[in-house]
Write a protein that binds this DNA or RNA. Sequence first.
DNA 1: GCGCGACGGTTAACAATGAAACTAATTCAT
DNA 2: ATGAATTAGTTTCATTGTTAACCGTCGCGC
Lengths: 158, 158
Amino acid sequence: MTPAFTIEQFLPFRLSVLSNRLTRASARVYSRRFRLSAPEWRTMAVLGRYGAMTANNVVDRTAMDKVRVSRAVARLTSAGHLTRRVDPADHRRAILELTPQGATTYQQIVPWLHAFQDEILSTLKTDERDALETMLVKLEQRSVAMAQTRTADDVAAS
Amino acid sequence: MTPAFTIEQFLPFRLSVLSNRLTRASARVYSRRFRLSAPEWRTMAVLGRYGAMTANNVVDRTAMDKVRVSRAVARLTSAGHLTRRVDPADHRRAILELTPQGATTYQQIVPWLHAFQDEILSTLKTDERDALETMLVKLEQRSVAMAQTRTADDVAAS
DNA sequence: GCGCGACGGTTAACAATGAAACTAATTCAT
DNA sequence: ATGAATTAGTTTCATTGTTAACCGTCGCGC
């Protein structure tokens, strides 16, 4: 007989539910007051942290696809949070940079998110946090490998 | 000066990227061969595991909203994977149940997902898995609490 | 009984997402 | 040089998710 499959214990499912709740909760920090979506905030976050960069760099750092970044940039630009100027050295690229207004907004949001993260982690003891970090790194590596590999199912279906 | 905010280290972000990759990878098991979406599979999974139940019960067990369940049920019904019959004791409710065909499909998918989960967890030692379980439970509880609470931001915006 | 609020579920309207096609600029092999 | 292949980024379109309104049914107070 097939062993029972309990979806509530299936890791991708659990992580999906968990991350949705956390992302939603944290998005309240910037969505209401600053009318930013999660992709928009993520874009601002990397520009605020690392300074000017191209859309492709944002893609690399945020694991979002280029369509989402493109749209986030469009909205952020028209909202005055960032500027794009074509790279003189390569006219395909545009350099993105936070405007002073965007930088101010960034500065206002950051402390809230630090507090948010602290609140999440407050349930964990110090050694548990270390363990979490270790496991996340392992799971992240594994997930990248599994996302690339063709599964046996793909083979069967092809 | 504001301390740096590094989004790659922000837990909701990391979990979001991780769970997207894992959900995608695991969805290949049922999407290609059986043309099922994640909500559809989730619905079948709880019916296969726990037997007949109402759509509301599915909502409770899967953390999906009722619209998604409703659409999943509609598609699964027309695909012949499940039946719905109105509860004679309460005509608002409908009892959902896998058809023999749906049950067969379920039985075929389950072993693959067990294998998938084993593969994910194969990076972790036994005591790490226990630790992961403990932390997930804590984070899940915390996330529920944080999703409900009105944040200070909500107050400021209202 | 009977009205009224709550419940189960569906439908409709709208925004977000992702795959693929597309444009323009650049690189590279010849 | 020159054209084929690549890269950066946008647009388009089909799918999906989300929110609100809605419909029929039920439970409860009177």
